[in-house]
């Protein structure tokens, strides 16, 4: 219940935060705190310095910007879930956001924090993958963009360097596409046992664009590229067969709630259902 001691700084600017982060070996960023603090309370995480970025202005926003929507890293799940801009132009994110944790968690947890933690069963990773989002990160030396597809590298591990901070997530407009997020909630934790985010565009009855992001199944969220390839150019009727192997070549997780066999099966079923929904029910 009680975290070990740590030093604490709450910088007012991003550059101050980046300096602090670089100043100590085992410094950690505190965003919404809803992944880090529970781990610290169980003393599974014992950072020496917490850099609280909650007081840096201007990191919480949702803005339209041409073909993209830009989301500040400190935007909470609740803000994403209720964002009119996202609901209109890129509704996959709000659809997943409203299924994260519970109301209190959504009021505090942030998209940047969730992505940086890269929990293998978090919801956002599947979504940003399916959206081909860009994750913008800052360090003392400047800014870089990491494509979502390159971001997740393993369980709780990402392309993010220790001294970098996520500042923004850029997602494309998908208002010309069907989208769906299907999730099997763990009944206790609320995490995704399997979460499947898809977007899909049909062109004269054939699948033109398709993207499938899957969380909860592997060490980290992934794109089901083989299924996407098998579906491109095919009619929606091909979905059932193509999705059967959505977890093939993945080292599938197993726990007391769901074995790897079941997760794999669930991934196939939920992927099919998500694609069918995204195709507007025309896939039967």
């Amino acid at each position: 219940m009680i975290p070990a001691n740590f030093d604490y700084e709450s910088p007012r600017t991003l550059s101050e935060a980046l300096e602090l982060l670089a100043s100590r070996e085992d410094a950690k960023i505190l965003a919404g705190g809803h992944s880090l603090l529970p781990a610290m309370k169980l003393r599974l995480a014992q950072p020496a310095l917490l850099v609280d970025i909650g007081r840096i202005g201007g990191l919480s926003y949702v803005r339209e910007s041409g073909e993209h929507i830009r989301i500040g890293a400190m935007t909470t799940h609740a803000e994403i879930a209720s964002s009119k801009v996202l609901q209109r132009f890129s509704p996959l994110l709000p659809q997943a956001a409203c299924q994260i944790g519970d109301m209190q968690v959504r009021n505090c947890g942030t998209i940047g924090g969730s992505l940086a933690q890269a929990h293998p069963a978090a919801d956002y990773p599947a979504v940003v993958l399916a959206l081909d989002a860009e994750i913008v990160v800052a360090s003392r030396t400047g800014e870089r963009e990491i494509p979502a597809r390159e971001f997740f590298t393993g369980m709780f591990s990402t392309e993010l360097h220790p001294h970098e901070i996520i500042t923004e997530i850029r997602v494309p407009r998908t208002d010309d596409q069907g989208i769906a997020y299907k999730k099997h909630h763990h009944p206790a934790s609320g995490y995704a046992v399997v979460g499947v985010a898809v977007r899909l565009k049909l062109s004269v009855g054939k699948i033109d664009t398709v993207a499938i992001g899957i969380t909860g199944v592997g060490q980290n969220a992934y794109r089901a590229t083989a299924v996407e390839n098998a579906l491109r150019g095919k009619p929606v009727a091909a979905i059932r067969e193509a999705t059967a192997h959505v977890a093939k070549n993945v080292e599938v997780l197993s726990d007391n709630y769901a074995s790897s066999d079941y997760r794999q099966h669930l991934a196939a079923v939920l992927t099919r259902r998500a694609l069918e929904q995204a195709a507007g029910g025309r896939a039967k």
Partner: peptide, 13 residues
């Protein structure tokens, strides 16, 4: 005004 779990917030926050 927003509901939060006070066991998962530091007093300094």
């Amino acid at each position: 005004g927003r509901a939060v779990k006070s066991c998962t917030v530091l007093a300094v926050q």
